[in-house]
């Protein structure tokens, strides 16, 4: 047998545009930095603690699961870290350590790994963690309660909870600018609206998240809230409050756009976003939960495979 040089052989194509999962995940992390920094400034050391714990345990759980299923370690692609980071941003800074650890466990293992890892998950892993924690330890998510020891120079109020429990009169004083600049109570990373919008727009421009989903989501919120407001302005808050409080902006840019649980075709993306928006307002206005974002996205995640069946006819297809 004569010796020959061995070449790398594969089927076409031989070019790749260089896009990587890893790049995407790290850029999303980059995009939340401003909002995250605002949260850390606002809440101080406890927030840093929660974030660090969340990110590290998320990576840890993924590594454990990789070992158990004897697959190559996937923590390098940054997805576990991203999951941990997004999860931490949705928590109040006072979250006890055991709740954070349980939460990341649920996110990474139940939410993602048991479905075969990234790409197999039919639901947004972060939201599964959030939802299960919210059901299990409701009290921990009472932001007003949680932040009682903080001293801020503005009205310490979680707008959506106030709306739910004390009626619209209690939040009339809040302006859009106040809300966007973070003068509201809320989770670590979700109160600084400017930061979130900036990050979201960056991601959209870079193509890491789809504008269709974010825009239709925000539109859905706006329109539904507007309809409610016009129907009964004494009971229901206007679109501005809904858009800029709670997890709305965070959800629009970082949660609803999670690849695996969202549609890929144009029209389905619009439907998907709008449906989440509508559902969010429905829960906030007539449901039991203070902030409907988590459950609304989960619910529409569920409908994603059905919605995504609306797709253009492929070339040459007979029917």
């Amino acid at each position: 047998m004569h010796k020959q040089k061995k070449y790398i052989v594969s089927h076409a194509p031989f070019w790749h545009d260089g896009s990587r999962l890893t790049t995407k995940n790290y850029h999303i992390m980059l995009a939340v930095l401003i909002a995250l920094a605002a949260g850390i400034v606002k809440y101080g050391v406890p927030a840093v603690g929660v974030i660090a714990l969340s990110v590290s345990t998320a990576i840890f759980w993924e590594l454990i699961m990789n070992k158990i299923t004897s697959r190559t370690a996937t923590i390098g692609n940054g997805n576990a870290a991203l999951t941990g980071l997004l999860f931490a941003m949705m928590l109040p800074p006072t979250m006890p350590w055991w709740a954070v650890v349980t939460g990341t466990f649920v996110c990474v293992i139940i939410g993602k790994e048991i479905f075969g890892g990234l790409g197999g998950n039919p639901f947004n892993p972060v939201l599964i963690g959030m939802a299960i924690l919210m059901i299990a330890w409701k009290d921990l998510f009472d932001f007003d309660q949680a932040l009682i020891n903080y001293d801020f120079d503005y009205l310490v109020l979680y707008p959506l909870a106030a709306l739910k429990h004390f009626g619209i009169s209690s939040i009339e004083s809040l302006s859009a600018i106040d809300l966007l600049s973070g003068k509201q109570t809320g989770a670590i990373g979700t109160t600084f609206g400017f930061g979130l919008i900036l990050g979201g727009v960056y991601l959209i421009i870079r193509g890491f998240v789809r504008w269709e989903i974010s825009v239709s989501y925000l539109l859905g919120i706006f329109v539904t809230a507007f309809i409610f407001k016009s129907a009964d302005s004494a009971t229901y808050a206007g679109p501005v409050i809904h858009l800029f409080s709670g997890y709305t902006l965070f959800g629009a840019f970082f949660l609803a756009t999670e690849d695996s649980s969202s549609p890929v075709n144009f029209i389905p993306m619009l439907i998907y976003g709008a449906a989440i928006g509508i559902m969010t307002i429905l829960i906030r206005n007539i449901g039991v939960y203070v902030d409907g974002t988590v459950f609304a996205i989960l619910l529409i995640n569920l409908a994603n495979p059905i919605i995504d069946k609306i797709r253009p006819k492929a070339m040459g297809r007979a029917v």
Binding site: G116, G119, P122, L299
Partner: peptide, 27 residues
């Protein structure tokens, strides 16, 4: 999806059903 072997089929089905039940909490 590449569900780990012991979880395949019914097991993962039940867990998914659980998550769906949770999503229905929205209502």
């Amino acid at each position: 999806a590449r569900v780990p072997k012991p979880l395949q089929d019914t097991s993962i089905g039940l867990i998914t059903a659980g998550i769906i039940a949770m999503a229905f909490f929205a209502f």
